[in-house]
Each structure stands twice: as C-alpha cells, then as structure tokens.
C-alpha cells in the first residue's frame, strides 16, 4: 500500500501494560477527522488489543507492520 504520512507519532516502545493502549486511546480522542496516527510498540499484547479497540474511538486501522524484532508500527486514521 502507498505510504501514508502520519500527523502524529506515539513511540510506545518499552512502555508497560496498558500504557500503549491508554495513550493511543487518549490521542485518538483528541484527533480531528482524517488525521493519521502512527503508534510504535514492542509489547505483543498491545499489538492485538490496540487494533481491536481503536474503532471504539473512531479509529480505522490502516496497517500493522513488523518493523523489527518484536516491534510493530500501527497506522490508524481517525474517521
């Protein structure tokens, strides 16, 4: 897919449970429609839970890619 340029980046690598999920949710709440958020994480549970819960804050998950050893980049668009 075409590379989308994020409006915001949350680097949540290293953070403990549930900080990546909570910060993603907080950020999504404040974003305007059409804006893009990129979340960098290295916590396996959050890789599955953030995409599952983003729609509740109006987030549409555009992509989840592995960027390194146990590191992922989740791109979310606010609808």
């Amino acid at each position: 897919m075409a590379e989308v340029k994020p409006d915001y980046t949350l680097d949540m690598r290293g953070e403990v449970c549930p900080v990546p999920d909570v910060e993603t949710r907080r950020k999504l709440k404040t974003m305007k429609s059409g804006e893009i958020l990129e979340v960098l994480i290295d916590y396996p549970l959050s890789k599955e839970r953030i995409p599952a819960n983003a729609p509740k804050e109006g987030g549409e998950v555009l992509s989840i890619e592995e960027t390194g050893p146990s590191e992922w980049r989740i791109v979310i668009k606010k609808k």
């Binding site: 690598r13 290293g14 953070e15 403990v16 900080v19």
Partner: peptide, 22 residues
Amino acid sequence: SALIFKEFKIRFPKDPKAYAYA
C-alpha cells in the same frame, strides 16, 4: 515461547515513573 515466536526483546520504559511504579 517468546524466542520461537520472535517476541523476545529486552524492553525498558523511557518514562522514569514506570520504574517507581514497578
């Protein structure tokens, strides 16, 4: 399990508060 499924990584929070909380 983490080794096999490539989920092992030494992780350190950047936020110092996390250590005090721990």
